[in-house]
Design a protein around this nucleic acid. Structure first.
Lengths: 395, 395
DNA sequence: GCGGTTTGTCAGCGTCAAGGACTAAATAAC
DNA sequence: GTTATTTAGTCCTTGACGCTGACAAACCGC
């Protein structure tokens, strides 16, 4: 595991990782292909691949359907990540429930569990459920638990990255100071990595979803709370203290409602799930849900149109400063509220186009997330996969 | 120069770079010290150092004053970067003039030239001056031109990082599309690296100035234009298109003055050098300079106090969103306007403390820059040094 | 079946960093 | 003054690594 930083074995480790990442990205690639892609020699790749095959990380895929080279030549042996070579678990702890995903190393989902539970006030119950569901999924998939390399956990709270514990959060109040990683590691017997849910949502949309190829993107999670995740220069940016992305607490209304953070007029007080639905309390009753709003929009209800577009403009307003400073290629809108679709996106686009200085405004694309509910859990999968590649495969 | 990515020689190159960087950071460190700091073995370090000594990159410093170890033992031989081993040039092209610095590889300034010239409309004159001054400085320092490894250039305009050319800019209108790097390379015969001045100011304050140790910082350059540079996760962040940091064009006043970017109420229209001094037109005449404002402040003039504090608050307002999203450790205020000092800083602090959500607000420090006028040129030095280390020493 | 072509492996070689033994140069104790 | 001790730096050997070049394998078209 640990090794001298500049030694020969570290070089081999780096090359191993290079090979695995290449296969991960390209899928079904031959040894020669890897050599061309990485710049390593065929011999070296062969040697590394031999190791990885022996360890069960890669497999030689079936040759059928392989494209013969023009003019003949020995057909290449396509290599893929071994689907039975291992898997990872991804968990999303949100205030209303828990989602657990089981996926192979390339991010293909093999199983899923969702459980409604009042996560806020029951850390022990929640963690117990997570552990049970996780082990259950692995068993149901017929997988060897020893080849499940890790678990990622997305949590709706800022994370102290060093200690893995949660900082104060009014969403998960009873969880403050709980070391989720340690507790879950004890239960499931594998490395557990914890991250903020908005950050992991960003990672997911970037890896699997609407943000593919955009190495600088902002993911906006419009849910009960409002958060954001940043991919900057092709890497997840978590900030010095691990809680970057407090989009929800940017003031957007002068002298607006008081927010749970103590300030006034925060974005969250205007476009949070509850704030948004409560706008309809007078006409549609106090129990209006986001699904109701979607239905109204489908029926071309002008009030709903107006409200969601306004919400989008508020999001845009909060984003202007950040977009001017960071010049992201893409803004991806996710979270439950994103289900309302177009009018919201139009609102965001409208505000950005109007307030950003000319060159930048045209370079930012605003899109809806493609992963829906599962974005954060998929991000947890990606987190676990990254750590797995880095730690377990590098040896 | 170019080499296989995973080969043995690449490993040696990386280790070379590691050694040089360690010496750069620590200064006067022995071989054993380097070994401890890098994790390499004494043998390896010795071998690398031998190469670097032979090439003149390092020198064995004088042993006098060396601290003998407690309990005796052979005294260590301190190593330093060879002051005569090479130098780099740093240039700042601003609208009103040109600054050229000559420094050794550790950032020590060996010579300086400043020339007032209307840079905006005379690309050829300006570049000719830069080349003359640069070669002159090298000769005056008694240095061998062959051991000057590169030149960095800070420019008040967005840079297309790929092509090294300038994008449209209303500050340097006649420079649009000019390939500064290529033109200067032809004149001075060394690699030239071009960067945005605010970005390089950030790099300078982080490397040499008020931002040392803060791996996440925002540098605010309050000059005629208003720009910003970002250090994120210990690296300069330039954005996808190389023009991140458009702080000056964040709207801060609803329906304010029209800005040169086409929008209304941009930060630049309120706190730019001209905007700020023109506030005093009625009472102090139209030719008020920033020095006059400083004098007024020194005399406890209440109007000046008020104006500068308000300017600070506007800067703070523009920064709130970014600070909430990025959680920087430090905000460094530089540029000519920063000379007004305390009331401006207090204004920024006031606004951030009031509008940032509680945990973040306390974690950000707002400081004045320590490098003054020379920050951007020093950043150009840092840029050239980085590139030098990476390209020339890695061989 | 036979040359042509591409894939993958094998053996030999040069390079690299690490570990241990050794020399160099100082201090501390006697 | 001499000897033991401690730390710094070098020399030599060793094991691992990746690359080059040669060779076998597997397919094409004729």
């Amino acid at each position: 595991m640990s090794e001298a930083p500049g030694s020969l074995t570290s070089l081999r480790s780096r090359n191993r990782l290079l090979v695995v990442e290449t296969v991960q990205r390209r899928g079904r690639i031959s040894r020669v292909g890897i050599a061309r892609a990485t710049g390593l020699s065929r011999t070296t790749v062969s040697s590394l691949v031999a190791d990885l095959l022996a360890e069960g990380v890669l497999t030689e895929a079936d040759g059928t359907g392989r494209r013969a080279s023009p003019g003949g030549g020995r057909p290449a042996t396509p290599l893929t990540l071994n689907p039975e070579g291992g898997g990872v678990l991804g968990v999303h702890l949100r205030h209303a429930g828990i989602r657990v995903l089981f996926a192979d190393l390339s991010g293909g989902v093999l199983g899923e569990r969702y459980h409604e539970i009042d996560v806020d006030h029951r850390p022990d119950d929640a963690l117990a459920y997570v552990a049970d569901a996780a082990l259950d999924l692995v068993a149901a998939g017929g997988h060897d638990a020893g080849r499940v390399f890790g678990m990622g956990v997305a949590v709706s709270a800022p994370i102290r990255s060093r200690s893995h514990t949660l900082r104060t959060s009014s969403v998960l109040a009873d969880w403050t100071g709980v070391d989720i990683a340690a507790r879950l590691e004890a239960r499931v017997g594998m490395p557990v990595h914890v991250g903020n849910d908005a950050n992991l949502g960003a990672l997911a949309e970037w890896t699997f979803g609407a943000g593919q190829g955009a190495d600088d993107l902002i993911y906006v999670m419009l849910s009960d709370g409002v958060g954001a995740g940043l991919i900057l220069g092709g890497e997840l940016y978590e900030g010095a203290t691990g809680s970057a992305g407090e989009l929800g607490h940017i003031p957007v209304v002068d002298g607006g409602y008081v927010c749970r953070c103590g300030n006034r007029g925060c974005l969250e007080t205007v476009v949070g799930l509850r704030a948004l639905t409560s706008t309809f309390a007078h006409t549609r009753g106090p129990d209006t849900t986001i699904a109701d709003v979607v239905a109204l929009l489908a029926a071309d209800d002008p009030g709903a149109q107006r409200v969601t577009a306004d919400a989008g403009r508020m999001v845009g307003r909060a984003l202007v400063g950040i977009c001017a400073m960071l010049e992201p290629r893409r803004v991806v809108i996710g979270g439950e509220v994103a289900a309302v679709g177009r009018p919201l996106l139009e609102g965001v686009r409208d505000m950005l186009a109007r307030q950003l200085p000319p060159p930048i405004g045209q370079e930012v694309t605003v899109t809806a997330g493609r992963l829906g509910d599962r974005a954060e859990a998929l991000g947890a999968i990606a987190l676990a996969t990254q750590s797995t590649s880095a730690h377990l495969l590098t040896r």
